[in-house]
């Protein structure tokens, strides 16, 4: 009997969370299309989410590109297909690894920071203070972050794609002895616009999910430092899971035959 109660409670809590998140998303989007638009805050968030995430995304991309080249060479050598390395690296980076890794790394860095900042504002009554000063927390706190996330993640992914391909190039040329001109030719010959565009669409969706989950968890945090800590953890975990789930759906939308 206790097991049934536990299952029922978990299911109800799940529905409650989905409902609450849907209302939150709706409010965030509704506020986003009505003035005032806080351009200064959007600019600051673009700097925070985009520019300051460049080192972590860049490092992740370059090592991933390097490992990808090594692993592909190792595997392709078994059936004499070493020349496919350049194509495998560029397609893997642009279609999958660039967006997903940049998304996950940004979720860890930005999602937690957003949840912690807004969560602290919640428990110290700063969000209530905003309301008493005739300012909507959705417009002032949520929308600048969501807009910055949606616009800056594609930029980060584009940089990750370029750096990742460059990592694969460095290993292939300097360690595996490939011809630079042939490697570059193989890289661009099989790359199609849709490979890059699908990755950028994924990035925009991931940016929305990361910032939305950070804002949602922070906005609903309760109970002081422990609550803020839990909000930061939940923001990263929920954004990561949603990124992976959304990644499958978008991939199916673009590439399923």
């Amino acid at each position: 009997m206790k097991l049934l109660v536990l299952i029922g409670r978990t299911v109800l809590h799940g529905f409650e969370t989905v409902g609450s998140l849907s209302v939150f998303s709706g409010q965030a989007l509704a506020h986003g299309v009505r003035p005032p638009i806080y351009l200064r805050l959007i600019g600051m968030q673009m700097l925070e989410i985009g520019f300051y995430s460049l080192p972590v995304v860049g490092l992740t991309a370059i090592f991933t590109g390097m490992v990808l080249a090594l692993q592909t060479f190792n595997a392709a050598a078994r059936f004499n297909a070493e020349s496919t390395i350049a194509t495998v690296v560029v397609l893997s980076m642009t279609r999958e690894l660039g967006p997903v890794l940049a998304g996950l790394m940004t979720a860890g860095r930005v999602g937690a920071a957003i949840a912690a900042e807004i969560g602290t504002m919640r428990v110290t009554e700063q969000i209530d203070a905003l309301t008493t000063l005739s300012t909507s927390p959705f417009k002032y706190l949520v929308m600048p972050r969501v807009i910055a996330g949606v616009t800056m993640l594609p930029f980060l992914v584009l940089v990750a794609d370029i750096i990742g391909v460059m990592g694969g190039y460095l290993v292939s040329i300097h360690k595996l002895g490939f011809n630079p001109a042939a490697y570059l030719k193989n890289t661009f010959d099989y790359l199609e616009t849709m490979d890059v565009v699908s990755g950028l669409v994924k990035a925009a969706v991931f940016g929305f999910l990361i910032t939305l989950m950070g804002c949602y968890q922070g906005y609903h945090s309760r109970g002081g430092a422990q609550g803020v800590g839990a909000a930061a953890t939940n923001a990263v975990v929920s954004a990561s899971i949603l990124i992976l789930a959304a990644n499958y759906l978008i991939t199916e939308f673009f590439f399923a035959r």
């Binding site: 602290t120 504002m121 110290t124 009554e125 700063q126 209530d128 203070a129 008493t132």
Partner: peptide, 12 residues
């Protein structure tokens, strides 16, 4: 309305 919050609630 104006409101003075218990912890002042100043924006950090």
């Amino acid at each position: 309305f104006g409101m003075l919050f218990q912890g002042a609630a100043l924006f950090d």
